[in-house]
Computed example of a mutant assay.
Amino acid sequence: MELDEKKYLYLLFILPLIVLLFLFNMYWKRKKQKEFGDLDLVKRLSPESSVFKPVLKLVVMLLAFAGLILGLVNPKIGTKMETVKREGIDIVFAMDVSKSMLAEDVAPNRLEKSKQLVSQILKQLGNDRIGIVAYAGSAFPVLPITTDYSVAKMFLQSMNTEMVSSQGTSLDEAITLSSTYFDDKSKTSKLLILISDGEDHSEGAEAAAEEANKLGMKIITIGVGTEKGATIPLKRNGVVESYQRDNNDEVVITKLNKPSLELIAKTTKGGYVNGNNTKEVLEYIKNTLDNIQKTEFEATQMADFQSQFQWFLGFAFVLLFMDVFFLERKTNWVNKLNLFNEDK
């Protein structure tokens, strides 16, 4: 059984409060009756008054309230089990979050454009598992392999140039970390989609790509930026305060390094695509995925839960309807039973 809205369970604490109010009311009535006169005399003056009926009305009301609360909680019962088989590939998105990705030669800037591209790619995926890696001067795992695309989109939108402390662009570390996301023993196809402006400040990107190729990985590189280049604006509250400068206090011009990205892709028999054109990227990725062999990587039993709130609400309304007809005077057949020894 699964509870849809567990927060409403706290309303069950109202039930003991109702019982306490009932007991206090009974005590108050008895006290007032004593003040009025002798209890035996009071009972004789109201022979039809029942002790049993108020208790019965309390029980009915408690059950009705409990039914209403359980209806709000909406218990769900699994009535059907089915086996779901998934076929797809494992995909890791390695995203460049270095300062150079703040350049605005691609609107609104290279980093935001990269996020838009990944978000659009996710929309055309099926049952593929995905992971996300961020990198600048070093690589950082953002999201492990998962099939939850909504979580992936949430992590994607939170990515920024401050999440990796060491600056620069280390493509080799991005490739190496991404390779750890894949299971070496699995026969599932492995695809790394590397998004960057290609400005590599480290050595060994080609060597890392060769190692990835040995593991059966294919790398698609997406170049974001222009070969003409642009400055890197440093903003505060959306206002440009200055521009990124190098050690010689010269304004940095960051340019798209297309050859570097093409070489990485070629090493793994992958491909390079211009990230400035969203349509071109989506078509290229779609064609690539259509030509990659998909394998069954998961078989999960899933319960088809069905809501049961209507039964509890129906039960509660029936009890409330019955409560209207419960009077506090004695019922003849119950009176004959003398359950509470009311007749003396």
Score class of each variant (00 low, 15 high):
324 V>S: 07
301 Q>A: 11
43 K>Q: 12
330 K>E: 13
228 K>A: 13
25 N>V: 00
285 I>H: 04
97 V>D: 05
66 A>G: 04
159 M>V: 12
161 T>N: 12
216 G>Q: 06
277 N>L: 01
314 G>Q: 02
50 S>V: 01
220 I>C: 01
181 Y>T: 13
298 E>T: 00
267 T>M: 09
115 K>E: 05
144 P>Y: 02
63 L>Y: 01
8 Y>D: 09
292 I>K: 07
35 E>K: 15
131 G>M: 02
69 I>H: 07
147 T>E: 14
234 L>K: 15
136 A>L: 03
116 Q>N: 10
27 Y>C: 11
96 D>S: 09
214 K>D: 08
240 V>M: 09
268 T>L: 10
202 S>D: 14
60 V>R: 00
329 R>D: 14
327 L>T: 14
134 A>C: 07
3 L>D: 09
223 G>E: 02
4 D>Y: 10
55 V>I: 14
305 F>G: 04
42 V>I: 12
326 F>H: 03
177 L>E: 06
164 V>P: 07
136 A>G: 10
27 Y>G: 15
266 K>P: 05
69 I>S: 08
135 Y>F: 15
132 I>V: 13
91 I>Q: 07
277 N>K: 11
273 V>N: 01
109 N>W: 02
103 A>F: 03
55 V>L: 15
208 A>E: 10
41 L>S: 12
56 L>V: 13
190 K>V: 03
12 L>V: 06
262 E>N: 05
28 W>P: 01
62 L>M: 07
80 K>V: 06
253 I>N: 14
249 D>P: 03
145 I>K: 12
130 I>V: 15
31 K>N: 14
273 V>R: 01
160 N>A: 07
68 L>G: 03
112 E>F: 07
105 D>M: 03
211 E>Y: 05
66 A>C: 08
291 N>Y: 11
211 E>C: 00
325 F>K: 07
194 L>C: 10
328 E>A: 10
115 K>Y: 06
327 L>K: 13
195 I>N: 02
222 I>A: 13
36 F>K: 09
37 G>Q: 06
300 T>E: 15
101 M>G: 05
